[in-house]
């Protein structure tokens, strides 16, 4: 029984619930259009919390270095955390194979023509994982700055990558995506010396214009430049997640309307 689908309306109260005018009945619904996905995402999140996992959704354009970042992260955390990876692409096992070579469990979701992962696809993938043996689960979303932003997968944090070759105005062009960031990684920093048109200040200004308080970190996964700032962020997030689990709480990547203040304090 709920207040959204009409199942709470009985024969007894039906006449009060609906106004019948000229053969039509108006039913107030007030339900999110992605309610089904969001319900599944909530279920996934409960599942992750039960296994004491921190789950990160990595989103970016294709080719901005998500898999390279994961490879470098796995190498750096080899002796500290147990990592798992869900890979999303339209076709091929290439990315999952790159991760498996590092000795980390990886499951490839091939979406066919779908441009994003949804909570149901991730749920199906979870059955392929020994979740109880992991500390960190990364979901590498389909490379796309549009659709993945709208679908909650059950993750705790959104990390968005912006490679310096893409241009510093990407946050202004794709506001729905960049607004969703809990952390913005500006990647391929080793290429900055040969690019005269990327300004980190402009990228930050464009992100702040979206009312985003997300921290920004500049790094190169390939050249191992400034990777520590990202690793420290992950360790801190994992510690916070474990503290939340201890208190029986969870966290959504996107801000609830009234939680902005508490979020500011965590940065």
């Amino acid at each position: 029984m709920c207040n959204t689908c009409g199942c709470n309306i009985t024969r007894g109260n039906q006449s009060f619930a609906h106004k019948v005018v000229n053969g039509t009945t108006a039913v107030a619904v007030l339900d999110n259009l992605l309610a089904k996905n969001n319900d599944q995402a909530t279920h996934n999140r409960q599942h992750f919390d039960k296994h004491r996992l921190l789950v990160i959704n990595l989103m970016s354009s294709p080719g901005s270095g998500k898999t390279a970042l994961l490879e470098a992260t796995i190498d750096a955390f080899r002796n500290e955390y147990r990592i798992g990876v869900i890979e999303g692409d339209l076709e091929t096992e290439n990315d999952a194979e790159r991760i498996r070579i590092k000795g980390v469990p990886a499951y490839q979701i091939t979406t066919g023509t779908a441009c994003h992962l949804d909570a149901h696809m991730v749920h199906d993938a979870l059955h392929q994982f020994p979740l109880e043996t992991l500390d960190l689960l990364f979901i590498e979303n389909v490379g796309n700055l549009v659709c993945p932003a709208s679908f909650d997968l059950g993750q705790h944090r959104n990390v968005i990558l912006l490679s310096v070759t893409e241009g510093d105005d990407k946050p202004a062009k794709y506001p729905v995506m960049f607004r969703a960031a809990n952390l913005l990684l500006v990647t391929k920093s080793d290429l900055l010396p040969v690019l005269d048109d990327f300004s980190l200040e402009r990228a930050e200004l464009n992100l702040r214009k979206l009312s985003s308080i997300a921290p920004i970190k500049l790094l190169s996964a390939r050249r191992n430049l400034n990777l520590q700032a990202w690793l420290d962020w992950l360790s801190s997030e994992l510690a916070q997640q474990r503290e939340r689990i201890r208190r029986g709480e969870t966290v959504w990547p996107q801000l609830e309307p009234d939680s902005v203040h508490s979020h500011v304090e965590t940065i």
Binding site: T24, T25, V27, L30, D31, N32, S211, P257
Partner: peptide, 23 residues
């Protein structure tokens, strides 16, 4: 830039009008 969204990210099914048998 420290603002909160009051309105603008809605994707809500507000209301459905049904043609009912009784009617």
């Amino acid at each position: 830039y420290h603002t909160k969204l009051v309105s603008g990210d809605e994707m809500t099914l507000m209301r459905v009008e049904l043609i009912t048998l009784e009617a």
